[in-house]
Simulated scan of single mutants.
Amino acid sequence: MRRHTILLVEDNADDAELTQTALARTRVDATLDIVTGGEDALDYLFGETSDGSMRPLPALVLLDLNLRGMSGLDVLNRIRARTATRRLPVVILTTSDNASDIAAGYDLGVNSYIRKPADLDTFTEVMHRLGLYWLHTNTPPPANG
Rank of each mutant, 00 (worst) to 15 (best):
residue 131 G to C: 07
residue 101 D to T: 00
residue 89 P to Q: 03
residue 61 V to I: 06
residue 60 L to E: 10
residue 98 N to E: 11
residue 126 V to T: 15
residue 116 K to I: 05
residue 68 R to C: 01
residue 97 D to Y: 00
residue 96 S to E: 00
residue 88 L to W: 09
residue 93 L to P: 10
residue 104 A to T: 14
residue 94 T to Y: 01
residue 93 L to Y: 13
residue 130 L to N: 06
residue 70 M to E: 12
residue 91 V to E: 10
residue 121 D to M: 05
residue 112 S to A: 15
residue 70 M to C: 07
residue 134 W to V: 04
residue 128 H to Q: 15
residue 59 A to K: 07
residue 139 T to Q: 13
residue 82 R to A: 14
residue 51 D to Q: 12
residue 136 H to Y: 09
residue 53 S to W: 00
residue 55 R to V: 01
residue 58 P to R: 06
residue 57 L to R: 00
residue 122 T to I: 01
residue 103 A to R: 11
residue 121 D to T: 11
residue 119 D to Q: 10
residue 132 L to G: 10
residue 115 R to A: 12
residue 80 R to S: 12
residue 134 W to Q: 04
residue 117 P to Q: 06
residue 69 G to I: 05
residue 140 P to V: 02
residue 103 A to E: 15
residue 110 V to L: 05
residue 66 N to F: 09
residue 67 L to K: 02
residue 117 P to L: 07
residue 71 S to I: 05
residue 134 W to Y: 14
residue 96 S to P: 01
residue 132 L to F: 02
residue 100 S to Q: 12
residue 75 V to L: 06
residue 129 R to C: 13
residue 92 I to A: 07
residue 115 R to W: 00
residue 63 L to E: 04
residue 62 L to K: 03
residue 75 V to W: 03
residue 114 I to C: 09
residue 82 R to Y: 11
residue 90 V to E: 09
residue 108 L to V: 11
residue 140 P to K: 02
residue 56 P to E: 11
residue 123 F to P: 05
residue 50 S to P: 09
residue 118 A to S: 13
residue 123 F to C: 06
residue 133 Y to C: 05
residue 121 D to W: 00
residue 85 T to G: 08
residue 122 T to M: 07
residue 89 P to K: 02
residue 108 L to N: 12
residue 95 T to V: 15
residue 93 L to C: 08
residue 71 S to T: 14
residue 78 R to M: 11
residue 73 L to T: 03
residue 122 T to D: 15
residue 130 L to Q: 05
residue 59 A to T: 09
residue 101 D to Q: 00
residue 140 P to T: 01
residue 113 Y to K: 01
residue 96 S to V: 00
residue 136 H to R: 13
residue 130 L to S: 04
residue 85 T to V: 07
residue 81 A to T: 06
residue 52 G to Q: 11
residue 56 P to W: 03
residue 64 D to P: 08
residue 102 I to H: 00
residue 85 T to K: 04
residue 86 R to T: 13
residue 84 A to H: 10
residue 84 A to V: 12
residue 135 L to R: 05
residue 80 R to P: 11
residue 70 M to P: 03
residue 128 H to K: 13
residue 66 N to S: 14
residue 102 I to N: 01
residue 115 R to N: 12
residue 84 A to Y: 04
residue 87 R to I: 02
residue 81 A to E: 13
residue 80 R to I: 11
residue 134 W to D: 08
residue 64 D to C: 08
residue 119 D to M: 01
residue 122 T to C: 06
residue 62 L to E: 05
residue 120 L to E: 08
